[in-house]
């Protein structure tokens, strides 16, 4: 199973395995990663799975859809180019080794 690193708001790294096809949000919630709520269940409706995706060579998730970009813009204060909704990124073999950072608040 691909391994994903979540850097939580306290700066602590959590290396966890995710099933192929699961969203990063689901992986984080299943492993109790602090700062990821996934309140709306992955419907882009709440913004509680916001993460920054590190620029890791070889681990590039597919780009944001228009819906995701719009929801980031309205929900999140200070959207960065690396901002993503964790619910919109599916774990696949190509993401093995991906590192994402959970923003504080």
């Amino acid at each position: 199973m691909p391994t994903i690193t979540f850097v939580d708001p306290h700066g602590i790294e959590h290396d966890v395995e995710g099933d192929v096809g699961q969203s990063l949000m689901t992986v984080a919630v299943n492993h109790d990663i602090p700062g990821i709520e996934g309140e709306c269940g992955g419907e882009m409706a709440c913004g509680t799975c916001h993460v920054y995706v590190a620029d890791t060579a070889g681990c590039v998730p597919p780009p944001r859809t228009t819906d995701e970009a719009e929801m980031l813009e309205v929900l999140i204060d200070g959207v960065k180019p690396t901002s993503r909704l964790g619910c919109q990124i599916r774990v696949g073999p190509e993401l093995d080794g991906l590192s994402v950072t959970v923003p504080s608040e």
Binding site: E43, A45, V74, L75
Partner: peptide, 19 residues
């Protein structure tokens, strides 16, 4: 139900987003 639900939710969320 999704997906059409989100098209409408998007309209009101900016007014209710915490930020």
């Amino acid at each position: 139900d999704p997906p059409e639900q989100l098209d409408f939710r998007k309209i009101i969320i900016p007014f209710l987003a915490s930020k």
